[in-house]
Design a protein around this nucleic acid. Structure first.
Lengths: 121, 121
DNA sequence: TGGCGATATGATGGATCCGTCAAACCAGCA
DNA sequence: TGCTGGTTTGACGGATCCATCATATCGCCA
């Protein structure tokens, strides 16, 4: 599991990234980064996902201890389990910015990098 | 792909995390975080992986633009493509520390974690 | 109690990822 | 040229992940 201390750190860390490795989950975490808490209903309308699909992803995020859920009335409210999650997303974005920038600077390697061949324009 | 600007940002970001979501790749990136550059031979002995397995993972990291490779003589040297990669790993570690700490505070055993993550009834 | 809206869980087929084996490639050197 | 160590690539079975459908649970209210 994510928090199993018997595993080496790099394995636990890889696990963390695996928990983040899906667009729907990133979407949810970003929405939660911009608000104290959001109900599942709110996430549903903001993401446009199918209810059960969203719930699956929320389950993953819960199991990876990245979010917490609290039921009040008939709604369930989610929030980030730690502010560091938002921080991680910010750093990820700045890394992406660096990669993209760097990439624009040297388009000549395009032929050797499959990733580059799909670049627009 | 990782750098395809036509895709929404959260999808590109999820892709980045997918590139990081494996212990061997985390291991390599951490080794590269502590040195200017390391040859494949060096990575081989430090990680203990099979040559072709390591090469596969290096290929992934290259395709995701997280590392760069340069051949000098008969050896190939790898280095981080951007310092932000190391930064991302640091933030990931601090997030993990927070999760683990928070977890120890709430309950004792790591094995009972699934119960902790269940929804309140 | 029964029904309804909101959310979660279980099962299933299809896609993707992983480790390993075999083969190819590349740079130096005899 | 051919050999050798270092590195990459291609292919394949097995494992894991994903979206969807069907079903279950919870809290509320009539």
């Amino acid at each position: 599991m994510l928090t199993d201390a018997s595993k080496p750190l790099y394995e636990v860390k890889a696990n963390l990234f695996k928990g983040l490795a899906h667009p729907a989950r990133i979407r949810v975490l970003e929405i939660l980064s911009g608000a104290e808490e959001v109900s599942v209903a709110g996430l549903l309308t903001e993401t446009g996902l199918e209810a059960s699909n969203l719930s699956q992803h929320l389950g993953v995020l819960r199991r990876f201890l990245l979010v917490t859920a609290e039921r009040r009335g008939s709604l369930v409210y989610y929030r980030l389990a730690h502010p560091e999650v938002a921080e991680l997303l910010r750093v990820a974005r700045s890394l992406l910015a660096a990669v993209l920038q760097d990439n624009r600077d040297r388009l000549e390697v395009a032929d050797s990098l499959p990733a580059l061949t799909e670049l627009p324009r």
